[in-house]
Design a protein around this nucleic acid. Structure first.
Lengths: 147, 147
DNA sequence: GAAACTAATTAAGTTTCTTATCTACCTTTG
DNA sequence: CAAAGGTAGATAAGAAACTTAATTAGTTTC
């Protein structure tokens, strides 16, 4: 509530984000999907169909691992492979409605949990977070462009 | 810049935090330590010595997994086991200087990366994040009390 | 002080990844 | 256009990181 533009402490921001990471990472999932598998679903759901090689880059695991994950997800009906019309070697992985439902369901859990916590903050605290949201979103955007 | 206390959208906050999680989770680590192993080191470094059962609760894996992780960390000189004077069955796991150095090193990497990104924000954006930091930290605190 | 409980370990098996190799398609170049 | 090299994905085998189940040792309770 002091609008004197205090300097941003990146160390503190880092620490806060670290804790959010560790807080959300262990959310129980109904289906037993590994972290990487969930991340693949999330990526496909958020950014649309992707090749296996693109997923390899974004998820930071080996191409072989992505093949195995996609195979398992396809067997469970959560994604489907489609040929890439522009390249006969490539495959485009699409998320199915069932797959999207899992991503949405997990997001709903997180929203519910955060809502409970945010309810315990003061209105001023909530306003401060709201005011920072666009900047935080920009930070994420910048990070995605970069690498 | 509009200090009219706009309502906080938890859905947007959730989305932003999700992306931060996925952004930081795949940071390359010099030593090949699993996510859970790094999380144990982080917990010990941040909250001091803990019993194996306490780590089991905070890391959300089985007690057996914690035993194996601690054994491996001890073999590598990153933690050490000490008897709990108040309970002959229990063991207190302490992080060693070498273990703390790994945690600090990884934090330094994250800080460096975030600093680069934050430099690309406007001063107003940085100020907005700075103003929200205490509230975000409180949110983390509340979450840790709860569960 | 016997029974029930709790903290940690050990053993064995499963899941999730990696490395190495392979096939198929694409692109380039002589 | 045919051969050479490059890229996308799949497969096999093995390593790493977990799980479940059973065991040991110490603690609490009645």
């Amino acid at each position: 509530m002091s609008p004197r533009s205090p300097e941003l402490s990146i160390a503190e921001l880092t620490s806060v984000l670290e804790n959010f990471t560790r807080m959300s990472i262990r959310l129980p999932s109904v289906q037993r999907l590994s972290f990487t598998t969930l991340s693949v679903l999330h990526t496909l759901s958020q950014r649309g169909p992707k090749r296996l090689t693109e997923l390899t880059a974004s998820e930071q695991v080996t191409q072989s691992a992505i093949t195995q994950i996609v195979t398992k997800l396809e067997r469970d009906g959560l994604v489907r492979r489609e040929p890439d019309p522009s390249d006969g070697r490539a495959v485009l992985v699409h998320v199915t409605p069932a797959g999207a439902a899992i991503v949405d369901g997990r997001r709903a859990e997180r929203i519910a949990r955060l809502t409970e916590l945010a309810d315990q903050l003061t209105p001023a605290e909530r306003a401060a977070i709201a005011a920072a949201l666009p900047a935080l979103a920009r930070l994420v955007e910048l990070s995605q462009q970069q690498h």
